[in-house]
Design a binder for these strands. Structure first.
Lengths: 190, 190
DNA sequence: GTCGACTGAGAATGGTCATTCTCACCGCGG
DNA sequence: CCGCGGTGAGAATGACCATTCTCAGTCGAC
């Protein structure tokens, strides 16, 4: 049975795959139709415009990412491991064959200056991700300065893995994180 | 007098400004013509297609960035300061009113999957920048692992400053760099 | 069975854009 | 004075694309 709900899911699955693999602007509505196996007419019934699809795509992916990180952190043991769990998640993501960088910075690069709704959605993602990382690091007992630096390592490893296809960016970041967390006990220079 | 050389410079100045401010795809040839103050005909005489303009834009900017970093590093004194000089340069860049993220990752997000020449140019930039950062860190006497982490901080701060408009990303990265460099003398956990 | 509301498939519309073309015009060698 | 290689300005071309529309079916209610 094809309920509106199931068609919506089917559509968003296809949209995610096509937008992410080909780029948002490069993907046209015909491609989405083909990938979703739905008539154009129905796509426009579910979402009134391509812009709405873009926002829905970003939000859906955001929700999934936040959940995945939180689950992995919850499953980790020691404070240090809880922080490193973030990068364990990233490492898995980078190694997915479909990995092609950060959907949000990609969208922002493509559309940020011309599409306010997309820019707002990306903003929302970045703020929430930063808040999550900060919370994890602080809860583990480390300083806010360290949290800021670790967030930069998250952003840096995602970008680097995306553009340079260097799949071990998360491993490199891990090394940095362990160094940083270790300094907690050895007297920083200011 | 308007030599081909001077017109080329005039054109590339305008192209840089427009591509960077509005996004490559969003900027059309009419805009470029208006900004450059040159007839369309002449633009196509100087560069046979928009794609060539994009590549020239990326390369010109790349050369300038590499030079600027090297100059700043050369002017710095102690080994630690030489590494930090990278982030001094970034800090200045982020505070330019026109700053709108990394031109290369922006271009890669927009065109990477569909334009091989642009993807190659971005690759070239990333490789050279990484090599430069690595060389600076190694020359200053630190380990390759630290160089990798510092490169991630470079990438992370540029992305973060671009998307979040958080102008102090370079300062946060600086804090991290000083922590990392300090661990050189206090016994890392592996 | 038949009416009406809805459907899928894909064609039409209207707009945008990179690229090329037209044309009236200029400077200059003969 | 003549003709020609090149010029600027902007109009034509051809392609692409989001969005809307057409039309011939189809299903359910009565």
């Amino acid at each position: 049975m094809s309920t509106a709900e199931s068609m919506r899911g089917q559509l968003l699955d296809a949209v995610e795959q096509v937008f992410y693999a080909r780029g948002i602007q490069a993907a046209n509505m015909s491609e989405l139709r083909a990938a979703a196996g739905l008539p154009l007419r129905r796509i426009y019934q579910l979402f009134p415009s391509k812009d709405e699809l873009i926002v829905a795509f970003l939000r859906r992916r955001h929700d999934r990412m936040m959940l995945a990180i939180e689950e992995r952190v919850d499953a980790a043991g020691s404070p240090e491991e809880r922080v490193l769990a973030i990068f364990t998640h990233l490492d898995g993501w980078f190694h997915e064959p479909s990995f092609r960088g950060c959907p949000w910075t990609n969208a922002y690069s493509e559309l940020g200056p011309t599409n306010a709704a997309v820019a707002a959605e990306v903003d929302h993602h970045e703020l929430e991700l930063r808040a999550l990382v900060t919370r994890i690091v602080l809860d583990a007992g480390y300083s806010p300065e360290i949290a800021d630096v670790i967030y930069l390592l998250v952003a840096g490893s995602v970008t680097t893995a995306g553009v340079q296809h260097s799949l071990d960016a998360a491993q490199e970041a891990r090394v940095g994180v362990r160094m940083l967390l270790a300094t907690g006990g050895c007297g920083l220079p200011r």
